[in-house]
């Protein structure tokens, strides 16, 4: 028996919006520690890892570990039927073939339940090694989204370079080229507006912009984003989910033959 009550139901709606275009089907894993998902996009270039910790739920009951295969397009259709202020409860029976999403309006005067069929998904769970990153950049998520969107009108790939001067995003295409440099700044008024660069050594990596643009659909989840990079390793693009967890996107770099 599984019963997870999330008061801020809009978070789950936003999570689905953030990943449904990248991943079609995925297993949601439920354990004592939380509600999680790990899935790759269909071309196996990117991986998304979601964690909603159990202590972030108002009520969290998970009698035994459960993996529920869901079509994210269908799940998103159902969650779209929840109001933004609704409390969402996810319910499932052990060994059942469906999951129920219950939506309660804040004043409790409207209660809906939507039952969705589960599916069997053969997914490979990948082990993500602990890594010391050469550079970690924390910046406003809207700024990162703006840069990815702007540069994708010029080129298909972006070179992200971190040096002591700042973080540089560069692209080029048929019509020309573009560079955007963000320097470290300290905002006294608002930590969310800060760009903070922690660098052990300079790093420069090339990525396909269309994946980064897809990741920025998570911008509504957090005011800041963190980019963690090491030479010739996937970048981690992380959005914290207020008080409850995170969504991390891993993207394989483009590497010289």
């Amino acid at each position: 028996m599984l019963e997870l009550r999330l008061v801020q139901g809009s978070l789950l709606k936003k999570v689905l919006d953030a990943i449904k275009d990248l991943v079609t089907d995925a297993n949601f894993d439920c354990s004592e520690s939380g509600f999680s998902l790990q899935a790759m996009d269909s071309s196996h270039v990117a991986l998304v890892a979601l964690l909603l910790r159990s202590d972030g739920f108002e009520h969290y009951r998970c009698d035994r570990n459960l993996s529920m295969g869901m079509n994210l397009t269908n799940m998103s259709k159902m969650l779209k039927c929840a109001g933004n202020d609704d409390i969402i409860t996810i319910k499932a029976d052990d060994g059942g073939d469906s999951v129920t999403f219950m939506f309660e309006s804040p004043s409790q005067d409207k209660v809906s339940d939507f039952e969705m069929k589960l599916m069997d998904i053969d997914s490979e769970h990948l082990g993500i090694p602990e890594t010391e990153y050469h550079a970690i950049v924390k910046m406003p998520s809207a700024e990162f989204a703006r840069i990815c969107r702007d540069l994708s009108t010029i080129g298909d790939t972006v070179v992200i370079s971190v040096s002591k001067d700042g973080v540089k995003f560069s692209t080029s295409g048929d019509i020309g080229s573009a560079n955007v440099v963000c320097r470290q700044n300290n905002s006294v008024d608002n930590k969310d507006n800060e760009t903070v660069i922690e660098m052990n050594e300079p790093v420069s990596l090339t990525f396909a912009l269309r994946y980064l643009n897809s990741f920025t659909k998570a911008t509504t989840l957090s005011n800041t984003v963190t980019l963690s990079m090491s030479k010739e390793l996937p970048v981690v693009v992380e959005y914290k989910i207020a008080e409850i967890g995170h969504i991390r996107f891993y993207l394989a770099p483009k590497i010289e033959d």
Partner: peptide, 14 residues
């Protein structure tokens, strides 16, 4: 030119 690698070449199956 640069080639797109697979994420599976970095993270191993569990």
């Amino acid at each position: 030119g640069k080639q797109q690698g697979s994420i599976m070449s970095f993270f191993k199956k569990q």
